[in-house]
Amino acid sequence: MLLEIEDIHVHYGKIEALKGVSLQVDEGEIVTLIGANGAGKSTTLKTISGLRPLTSGRITFDGKDISKVPGHKRVLLGIGQSPEGRGIFPGMTVEENLHMGAYARKGDLTKDMAEVYDLFPRLGERKKQAGGTMSGGEQQMLAIGRALMTKPKVLLLDEPSMGLAPMLIQQIFKIIEEINRRGTTVLVVEQNAQQALSLAHRAYVIETGKVVKSAPAAELLTDPEVRAAYLGGDLAVDEAANDTAVDTTPRNGQD
């Protein structure tokens, strides 16, 4: 098990945001955590990255208990994150933003930079542009590229589809699949359950700070409760909608 979260509780002041979340991510997997706004998806990712302190519970990464490791050191252990709202440094160029991803490590970056530009040719065309002046889709690419510059063993993605047009969402999810194919484990948090479940191998459903369901992603795609709550309606209605939608080849299990 690469990443194991056991019964974590997290508080914001007196409010309990996570009420005992447990989940596991195995090496090579794409795992998704779906749920409504405010369910605790982002808090889970922030806690894994060490931005929020645990009240109780345990996080194990790569065989080590990292519950007490400060956030900036978790990056070096191999936890990279593209945060909620993308977190682009607005005053820095694309190139500088990418360099920030490698802030904690030493060594030659040319190869890693080239790899990011290969995944996202668009970023290569805009190396000198200020991050704050880029479009939403470009910023999302930059956020993912920058997270890759940390050389993560597990890549945490917080709502990569947020605020993007359907075409762009397609493109971003294809790239996530490609990143995983090249060997990086992915944990993606999404409100866009349809897309996330089509991409992932396994999925967890979180509601008001608790995991209420976990299953292979393909199973949840046809689960009536999940469909009703997150996929906008019952099977028949949704299938009709799917016919007109752009092709989203569902993935089930390993390639």
């Binding site: 922030k46 990255s49 060490g50 931005l51 400060p70 956030g71 900036h72 050191k73 990056v75 070096l76 990279g80 994150q81 945060p83 977190g87 440094f89 607005p90 005053g91 820095m92 500088e96 360099h99 920030m100 991803g101 802030y103 904690a104 490590r105 920058r146 997270a147 940390t150």
Partner: peptide, 24 residues
């Protein structure tokens, strides 16, 4: 400099700076 970049990153977005491995 690198430290200078860390200062600017922290000024622009401290949480994301931590995600980059910056020790605030």
């Amino acid at each position: 400099t690198k430290v200078g970049r860390g200062i600017r990153a922290t000024a622009q977005d401290p949480e994301t700076a931590v995600l980059m491995g910056v020790n605030i």
